[in-house]
Structures are given as structure tokens and as C-alpha cells.
Design a protein around this nucleic acid. Structure first.
Length: 238
DNA sequence: ACATTAAATTCGA
DNA sequence: TCGAATTTAATGT
């Protein structure tokens, strides 16, 4: 192992292999061969350092995006510089289809919370799949529907003042198997990041996390959490 | 806000 | 390449 594999081959022509596609995009397994081949050709990967902005608000994102590894947050920054996080997207999540479909500037910032590897599918490929692939459309409907209920739930628990159930649902949402498949039961995320995502302070997040741990729904590690009982986490405090 | 502890990085052999 | 020393990041209170 003398030479490092590659610094980060952005030098390569666009496209990923079939095996790679299956790894970065669970939905590709539902596509027939020809369509999967198309998808491969239209995807490039890129790495972002922690804190890097993947797509500033109000710019046109020319691609549909997936999180290969790492963690990303979607949010907005108001005039006074206060930042509001709407949602976090862990590895396995694909998003931005709304912006690509409408060919419209994104309304939110996308920022890497930690070193993150992203996949970008160019607009032409995305549109081709929308127009030709039944399987892909089935996936999109499922995904949009799931996201709708995700935000409905968010509205609901936004009014609950208690930090702990709030955090519980926030964590549970990061383990949504439809939106973020194949991420297992463990996520590398700091308590500070969890605070950002659920709109509570790090201190309170720390206390809530311990409460959740005491109730046996999660396990805590340094820089990460493991879900023990997803079902109970989902309905925590209800 | 501060003290503690874990992890990542640097440095010297 | 190994491990001790230093720095940085995360956690606990």
C-alpha cells in the first residue's frame, strides 16, 4: 500500500460504476438495467470539508443531490446572521428534486456539518429518468410522500415545548428508513449538531440525550449515537 | 461558561 | 513506523 488510492479523483470523467451506484443510491436497485446505466453516467461525486457550503441559498443547483457519507444540514440564515436549521440529511439521503424539477433557485442553504461526500446527478439525467423510468417515478412519489409526513410531524412536535421528546423525534427522523436507507442503527453526530438540528441548546441536548439513554432508547458514544429502539424513539413522550 | 475527557495530530527517534 | 507529547474537539456540569 505505497501509493494512496487517489487524492480525490475529481480529474475523472463523469460517471460511477454500477457497484458504486448501488452503494451510494439505494433507489438504483429498483431500476431496470438500462436505466441504472443511465444513472451511473450522470453522477459525479465530490467531497466537502466540514462547514463548507454545498449550495448557497438562491443559487440554481443544477443537480439532484445525494449524501454518500457524512452529514448535511438544510437551513436558512436570516438578516441578523442567525441561522435556522430545518432538517439534517445523513448518508443515504437524496434531496433537491423540487429545485431540479422546477429549475428554480434553492430557497435554503446546504452546509456540510462534517466532512461529507456528495453525489450529484446532472439535471439532464434526472429529467430523463423522470420521463422514462416508471421505477424511478415510483421512488420519487414514495420519497416525496415520506418527506411530507416528515414535515407534518415536525410541525406537530414544534409546539411541544419539552426538549427531550423533541430531540427524540429529531433523532428518529434521521433514521427514517425510507428517506435514509441503509444507514444502520448508528450515526456519527455530536451533541452540538443534534442541538442545531432540533433547535435546542447543546446543554439541553446533552441532558435530553442522557434521559433518552436512561430510558434505554439510545446508546451514547463519543461523537455519535446508536438507536436501540427506533419505534419507541419515534413516539417518545406521546 | 468552565472543567474534564476523548480523539486527532505532530514530532522525535 | 511507533509512541509520547501537544492540540483540538466533544462532553458533562
Amino acid at each position: 500500500m505505497t501509493a494512496p488510492p487517489r487524492p480525490d479523483a475529481e480529474a475523472g470523467r463523469p460517471g460511477v460504476g454500477r457497484a458504486r451506484l448501488a452503494h451510494i443510491a439505494a433507489w438504483s436497485l429498483e431500476l431496470p438495467e438500462e436505466e441504472a446505466e443511465r444513472a451511473c453516467a450522470g453522477i459525479v461525486e465530490k467531497t466537502f470539508a466540514r462547514g463548507a457550503c454545498i449550495c448557497p441559498k438562491h443559487t440554481v443547483l443544477e443537480s439532484w443531490t445525494g449524501v454518500v457519507s457524512g452529514l448535511v444540514k438544510v437551513g436558512a440564515v436570516s438578516k441578523d446572521g442567525r441561522s435556522v436549521t430545518f432538517t439534517g440529511v445523513p448518508a443515504g439521503g437524496w434531496f433537491g428534486e423540487g429545485s431540479v424539477l422546477k429549475n428554480e433557485p434553492r430557497r435554503y442553504d446546504i452546509v456540510a456539518l462534517r466532512n461529507t461526500r456528495m453525489a450529484f446527478m446532472d439535471r439532464a439525467t434526472f429529467m430523463w429518468l423522470v420521463e422514462h423510468s416508471v421505477a424511478f417515478n415510483r421512488f420519487l412519489v414514495r420519497q416525496l410522500n415520506e418527506r411530507l409526513s416528515h414535515f407534518m410531524a415536525l410541525l406537530e412536535y414544534d409546539r411541544m415545548l419539552d426538549a427531550t421528546p423533541r430531540l427524540a423525534r429529531c433523532i428518529a427522523s434521521l433514521f427514517n428508513p425510507v428517506l435514509y436507507p441503509g444507514s444502520g442503527d448508528h450515526l456519527e453526530i455530536t451533541q452540538e449538531e443534534l442541538g442545531l438540528l432540533s433547535g435546542i441548546t447543546r446543554q439541553v441536548a446533552n441532558q435530553s440525550l442522557k434521559a433518552l439513554h436512561k430510558d434505554g432508547v439510545v446508546r451514547l458514544e463519543y461523537g455519535g449515537v446508536t438507536v436501540v429502539d427506533l419505534e419507541r424513539l419515534r413516539n417518545y413522550g406521546a
